[in-house]
């Protein structure tokens, strides 16, 4: 258990340290998300966006996660780190969790930078549901990061990696999108919590299932 936590800690630390030095990933994600928002804002030039707004927000987050997470394992393969990971005497799920925590930090940072812009561009009224929205935001991001990190590991050593990553991530993260979009819709519309509570539950349940499955599966993916 101690070794497991150590491995998670050091891999997260390494990823954050690398990112602090070159800031490539964060910059790419942020500017990609900005581009998407700009395209959206003139593609859907209508007065009342409330009906499609939750969908727009999560589409933007979803595409951004494709850009940010798709390359997550590429440096590890290019620098032959994977070989060293294999001789670590711990469950390979620890490596996955380490990468996951790092990715989650990046995605949350980019997402938090986007929220003021969303409020600005689309004239959103956060209302009294700010904390609930933050919870939905974190749970949705976690869902995307859990699956994104897993498929990034899975596609890092196959042909046509750039094609396969979104082709796997988008259909398989549909439960996350459904939960996040419906919960966001409820929270933005100012509904009372019990009306959309089950969507948040759905999101959290899928997060839980996916993280357990991914932890177990990563042993099979990273172990050769």
């Amino acid at each position: 258990m101690r070794e497991l936590i150590n491995v998670i800690y050091w891999i997260t630390w390494k990823d954050l340290r690398c990112e602090l030095r070159n800031r490539e990933n964060l910059a790419a994600m942020l500017f990609f998300a900005l581009n998407i928002l700009l395209v959206f804002s003139f593609s859907f030039a209508m007065d009342d966006l409330t009906a499609i707004l939750p969908g727009l927000i999560w589409t933007a987050f979803g595409f951004t996660s494709i850009v940010g997470l798709g390359r997550s394992f590429v440096p590890e393969v290019q620098n032959d780190c994977v070989e060293y990971y294999q001789i670590l005497p711990v469950h390979k799920g620890a490596i996955y969790l380490g990468k996951l925590v790092g990715n989650l930090v990046f995605m949350t940072l980019v997402g938090l930078a986007l929220v003021p812009l969303l409020v600005l561009f689309f004239n959103i009224d956060l209302g009294g549901a700010t904390w609930i929205l933050l919870l939905i935001f974190l749970a949705g991001m976690a869902g995307l990061a859990i699956l994104g990190t897993l498929f990034s590991a899975l596609t890092s050593r196959i042909r046509a990696r750039e094609v396969m990553f979104p082709l796997l991530l988008l259909p398989l993260s549909v439960p996350v999108f459904i939960g996040a979009v419906e919960a966001t819709r409820g929270a933005l519309a100012g509904d009372p919590l019990p009306l959309y509570r089950h969507w948040i539950d759905l999101l959290l349940i899928f997060d839980g299932i996916f993280v357990i499955v991914a932890f177990w599966i990563s042993e099979l993916i990273l172990d050769d």
């Binding site: 899975l154 259909p171 549909v174 299932i209 991914a214 599966i217």
Partner: peptide, 20 residues
């Protein structure tokens, strides 16, 4: 061997769509 393991991983994660 890798093909079989990766494919199995995808099939297991994708099973979440079925209850929906």
């Amino acid at each position: 061997d890798r093909e079989a393991r990766y494919a199995a991983a995808v099939a297991i994660v994708g099973f979440a769509d079925l209850p929906i």
